[in-house]
Amino acid sequence: MEILAFGVQSDEKPLIERAFAGRHEVHCLDVFLNRDTAPIAAGHEIVSTSVNADLGAQVLQTLAAGGTQMIAQRSTGFNNIDLDVAERLALRVARVSFYSPYSVAEFAWTLAMAVNRRIIRAASRTRDFDFRLDGLLGRDMHGRTAGVIGTGKIGEAFARIAHGFGMRLLGWDVAENPACTGLGMTYVPKEQLLAEADLVSLHVPLLPATHHLIDADALALMKDDAILINSSRGGLIDSTALVAQLRAGRFLGVGLDVYEAEAGLFFLDKSLEGVDDDTLARLVTFPNVVVTSHQAYYTEDAVGQIIDATVRNIADYLAGRRSENVLVPAAPAG
């Protein structure tokens, strides 16, 4: 059976091909699945998609009409998938429920330290042989307060690093993580966390209840010299409100690996044509903001685990098995 994989990065391709070798033929495409590219999948029972795929109603209908019966998404998040429509179309949908939490947690800390210690500006200066320290003043993390919003596996890994820095830990989640309380984390209302934290890092999924969790009111609660990090999902932050706060001169730094309107932008080369997203264009101009293109998960370890889980999801589908990765159960063909 030939499996069609959309949105495959050049680094991923040999890993995917090696993982499926001896099992199935896999055809890797660097284009992302959307309304324009969905017809390419015609005749393929199984397709694999990336985190920025458009799996709305129209795309799902096109896939089903072309004979697709199983979608294996290579990510944990699934806010891009219309699960109700998939169920009506009898499409089996599976995701990767777990991969290395250290990849994202470590990258969140990379962003935090990059904005704190002005690494981007410093590196740019030294490349021009400008070795002044003006404007590069950072601060110790030791003794300051880290606020972790979402204390699942990734939030816990982030908190462990913060604990290593010697930081006071505040947490907010629907349920307490005993491993985090064991580190000395105190769970508090979100408003208190935002008001007291010197560093706020987001590690919750994007759901209707968490959309714009960090809105204008939440941002107003934060310290003027706080650091805000988002390596989870772009829709957690109201980007327009964030721009307004940055224009007012607030925040020591902001690190964003995700953006709420990243689909159609991130993972693509727009250097020659530019972008027409005025909010993103403004965000990247602030000297205290670092924006990266959804790469926090992108380590050999995490990508390898994602691919291995995708292989298992497809094997489970063909064998008629269920696992915790199945979002929409549908009977396998044949």
Rank of each mutant, 00 (worst) to 15 (best):
C180Y: 00
C180W: 03
C180I: 08
G182E: 08
G182R: 10
M185L: 12
L194M: 14
E196I: 05
D198F: 11
P205K: 03
L207M: 15
L207R: 15
P208E: 00
A209N: 10
H211W: 11
H212I: 09
I214C: 04
I214M: 10
A216Q: 14
D217G: 11
D217L: 11
A218G: 15
L219V: 14
L221A: 06
M222T: 10
D224N: 15
D224Y: 10
D225A: 11
D225E: 13
A226Q: 08
A226T: 13
A226Y: 10
I227D: 00
L228K: 02
S232Y: 09
G234D: 04
S239L: 03
T240H: 07
V243Y: 05
Q245A: 13
Q245V: 00
Q245M: 10
Q245W: 03
A248S: 12
A248E: 10
R250A: 05
G253E: 02
G253W: 02
G253Q: 02
V254A: 02
L256T: 06
Y259R: 04
Y259P: 09
E260V: 14
E260M: 06
E262D: 08
E262I: 12
A263F: 14
L265H: 11
F266I: 08
F267M: 09
L268C: 09
L272E: 13
L272C: 08
E273N: 14
D276A: 10
D276V: 07
D276C: 08
R282W: 00
L283E: 02
T285H: 06
V290D: 01
V291F: 07
T292S: 13
T292E: 02
S293M: 07
H294R: 12
Y298L: 11
E300F: 01
I306K: 00
A309T: 15
